[in-house]
Amino acid sequence: MKRSIKQNLARVGVAVVATAAAVVAVPSVAQAAGYNGVCGSGYRVVDSMSLAGGTAFLTYNSSTGQNCAVTVRNSTGSPVYVLASIRVAVGGSLWHKDGDYYGTYAGPVYVYAPGQCIDWVAQIDDDSAQQLDSHCG
């Protein structure tokens, strides 16, 4: 079935209007990173911290007693330094960490600490942007 030039132009015009509407609907602010599930099944987010360039997530699995930390960039890009680190707060235990140049995320890192307070650190790119937080519960 042949279409007339007029019918083809009408279809192109509708496509252009739809594309323009989609472009207008895109927000100009970067989307905040969401938890990417890399800690595994059974983990739920119990805390988070906003960083320039992403979000760090602290998760917990109540059936295993494991805490997990992951730092996720807002958008994939050229590798920058990304850090996820976690430890049991009491007794000055060793840090479990993953810090390197990544395009997407650092972690997961785990520590067994049911019912204990933990310290966790996250960083994306700039050394001055490193954040430490404690979580009990």
Score class of each variant (00 low, 15 high):
Thr64Asn: 07
Thr19Met: 15
Leu83Lys: 07
Gly37Phe: 08
Arg73Val: 03
Ala33Ile: 05
Val16Lys: 04
Asn61Val: 06
Gly65His: 03
Leu51Ser: 05
Gly53Asn: 04
Tyr35Val: 04
Ala21Arg: 06
Ser75Lys: 14
Val17Leu: 15
Gly54Glu: 04
Thr76Gly: 10
Gly54Leu: 01
Ala15Val: 14
Leu58Phe: 05
Ala52Met: 00
Gly40Tyr: 09
Pro79Leu: 04
Phe57Trp: 05
Gly77Thr: 08
Asn74Cys: 06
Ala33Glu: 01
Val70Asn: 05
Ala20Ser: 14
Thr76Asn: 13
Tyr81Gln: 09
Ala84Met: 02
Cys68Arg: 02
Gly42His: 10
Asp47Cys: 01
Ser75Ile: 07
Val46Met: 11
Gly53Trp: 03
Phe57Lys: 03
Cys39Leu: 09
Gly77Gln: 08
Val82His: 02
Val24Arg: 00
Ser85Pro: 00
Leu51Asp: 03
Ala69Val: 11
Pro27Glu: 09
Val72Lys: 01
Ala25Asp: 09
Ala15Asp: 06
Gly42Val: 11
Ala89His: 14
Ala15His: 05
Ala30Glu: 14
Ala52Tyr: 08
Cys68Gln: 05
Gly34Gln: 15
Val88Met: 06
Ala22Tyr: 12
Val14Leu: 15
Ala52Lys: 13
Gly34Asn: 14
Ala30Pro: 08
Gly54Cys: 07
Ser48Leu: 07
Phe57Ser: 00
Ser48Thr: 10
Ala18Lys: 05
Ala84Ile: 02
Val17Ser: 11
Gln66Asp: 13
Ser85Asp: 11
Thr76Leu: 12
Ser48Arg: 09
Gly77Ser: 09
Tyr35Asp: 06
Val38His: 05
Gly53Pro: 02
Asn67Met: 13
Ala20Asp: 04
Ala84Asn: 02
Thr59Lys: 01
Val17Tyr: 06
Ser50His: 10
Ala22Gly: 15
Ala30Trp: 03
Thr64Tyr: 07
Val80His: 05
Val82Cys: 02
Ser28Gly: 13
Thr19His: 00
Arg87Glu: 03
Ala25Lys: 09
Ser50Lys: 14
Ser63Thr: 14
Thr59Ala: 15
Val14Gly: 08
Pro27Trp: 10
Val23Met: 14
Ala52Glu: 12
Ala56Asp: 03
Tyr81Val: 07
Val88Ser: 08
Gly40Phe: 08
Ser41Phe: 00
Val82Met: 03
Val88Arg: 13
Ala33Tyr: 04
Gly54Ala: 08
